[in-house]
Structure formats: structure tokens, C-alpha cells
Design a protein around this nucleic acid. Structure first.
Ligand SMILES: [Mn+2]
Ligand SMILES: [Mn+2]
Ligand SMILES: [Zn+2]
Ligand SMILES: [Zn+2]
Lengths: 137, 137
DNA sequence: AACAAATTTGTAACCATTACAATTTAATTC
DNA sequence: GAATTAAATTGTAATGGTTACAAATTTGTT
């Protein structure tokens, strides 16, 4: 998605496309690295020296309200964000810290408990050791 | 599980069963309410006036290392704990805050991505509105 | 251009968690 | 069983990610 489309996409979702918002959304949707606020802040600081950490917090909060991103809270004190809001799983390697995406074909839950419940968000994550880290031993 | 068995269970998992540890594990495994550290601390303070919040933190950390409890991090800044370490899902009602357990019969993931990965922990949670909250409207 | 509204920014406050040293309790040695 | 050592608990201070807030800047409107 190029800059112009990025801006259009934000508008379409009721978000006024300021430069900061465009850059932050662009970062998240192109890098696909499930970054923390600080990662986004520090990386974007290179090209936007006046960027404030608070703006990154505010922007993610706005994006969440408009549901164009999702929050990943695998570990306490490490909130990450993802521009891919489609249902998919995350694998976090406890060795290298990398987060991998994986597809979910099917989740079968025991119906009775959640009968008449309204499910608005689904999150699935695994923790373990990734292929690279297992081979490097 | 009665007190004696509680103590035995801790021992069996390499945990010296002090009074604090027994009470904290007992609280978690009998109430099944997915409490935060502060909930456990405040509730147990009634019967153990000298209990320290730090002890609850220390104890949960130890229990996690020994893998007799699991951590639930559905929302940032709200870490909860569960003595049920078997694979099961959690539904958090965004209205009343209650956390419901539900069984998982089957999860089918796209094999190729996680091939040769070592999966040690699986977490699935849903967010939405529970039956009670939907009816009360 | 003047004014109003929205956004961004920097700093201070907040608060859950952790670090740490002192105290208490339990285990070991003599 | 007293003395000694080790382990566990406790209270307080420090840490660090997040939020509150007010000032400054940018954008939109009259
Ligand atoms: Mn993802
Ligand atoms: Mn549970
Ligand atoms: Zn790895
Ligand atoms: Zn509810």
C-alpha cells in the first residue's frame, strides 16, 4: 500500500490522516514486526526528529478504537501491536524473542459455555522455541 | 483437595510448602476466579494479617517456574493467574470484567509455519460480552 | 487575517512490578 | 538444645511503561 492509499485507508476508517498517523500506520503495516511503542518511537525518530512518544501512544489508542490494529499482550510489560486484524495466531520464541505469524484453519470450542455470548475478538498465541534457535544449539 | 494434599502437591513439584505458599495455592485452585495479585493479597490479608504483597509476587513467580500455574495476560496492566494448567480457553466480558473458562476440542493451525518449532505453551482467549450482560440491556 | 478546533508535544504523575536489605522462620550442626 | 547457617517473608525504595495534563503547534473555518 503506497502513501496515498495509506491516507485513504485511514480516512475511510474515520481517522484524520496527519503525517504522524500515516507514518505510524505505514510502519506497522509494512514492517509486520509486531513492535512495541518504543520500537516504533525510536525507529521513526530517525526521520521525524520531533516525534513524541505520547503521540505514538495516542495514535495506537485511536487506531485500536477504530479497530484498524490489534494489541498483542503475550507477556506482561510488553505490549505489541499488529496492523493485521484478521484472525491469525502468534508464536513467540522465548529464546530470541521473535514473534511469528501463523494461520488458523479451525478452532473448535465446547459450544455450551459460550452459548449466547457475543465474541468480538479472538486471540491465540503459542510460546516456545523457534526452529532457528533449536538448530543453533 | 484438602490442606494435606495441597501441601503434598507442592512438595511433589519441588516447592517447600510454607503456610503462605499453601494458602496462596489453595486460594487459586479452589476459587478458580483468575485473580490478580492484589485480589489474592487483599483477600488473604483477612486471615493472614502479616502477609506481604511481595510474597504473593514471589510465590506466583515460583509457581510459574515450577509450572503449576499459568499467567493470563488478556489486557495490559492486568495480569491474572490460574491454577488450571490444562489447555482451555478464557472469555473475558468487556462489560462486567468476568473471566469464563471454556473447553477447546480442537485447534487446527497451518502446519508449515510452525514445523520444527517446539511449542511449550498454548493460550486462547476471546473478548466480548457475556450472556448476563447482553440480557441486562 | 482572526478565530476556533484538533493535534502534537514535553513533563509530571501514576501505579504495577521488581530490587534489595532487614527481619523472621526453618533447618542443620555441634 | 543452643549456636549457626540457610531459606522464606516482609517493608520500603527504585524502576519503568503508561497516562494525565497543559502548553505549543498545526489545521480548519469564518
Ligand atoms: Mn501478527
Ligand atoms: Mn481458566
Ligand atoms: Zn528463536
Ligand atoms: Zn458480562
Amino acid at each position: 500500500m503506497i502513501m496515498k492509499n495509506m491516507s485513504e485507508y485511514l480516512k475511510k476508517n474515520g481517522i484524520k490522516p496527519s503525517l504522524q498517523r500515516i507514518k505510524i500506520y505505514e510502519y506497522l503495516s509494512t514492517k509486520k514486526n509486531h513492535p512495541t511503542v518504543d520500537q516504533v518511537y525510536n525507529d521513526l525518530l530517525q526521520e521525524m526528529p520531533t516525534l513524541s512518544r505520547t503521540t505514538v501512544y495516542n495514535t495506537f489508542k485511536l487506531f485500536l478504537e477504530k479497530k484498524i490494529i490489534m494489541m498483542i499482550t503475550i507477556e506482561e510489560n510488553e505490549v505489541r501491536y499488529d496492523a493485521n486484524t484478521k484472525l491469525h495466531g502468534h508464536f513467540k520464541c522465548e529464546n530470541c524473542g521473535k514473534i511469528y505469524d501463523f494461520g488458523i484453519s479451525y478452532i473448535q470450542v465446547d459450544e455450551d459455555v459460550l452459548n449466547d455470548f457475543l465474541v468480538e475478538e479472538r486471540q491465540l498465541y503459542f510460546i516456545g522455541k523457534c526452529k532457528n534457535c533449536l538448530l543453533d544449539k
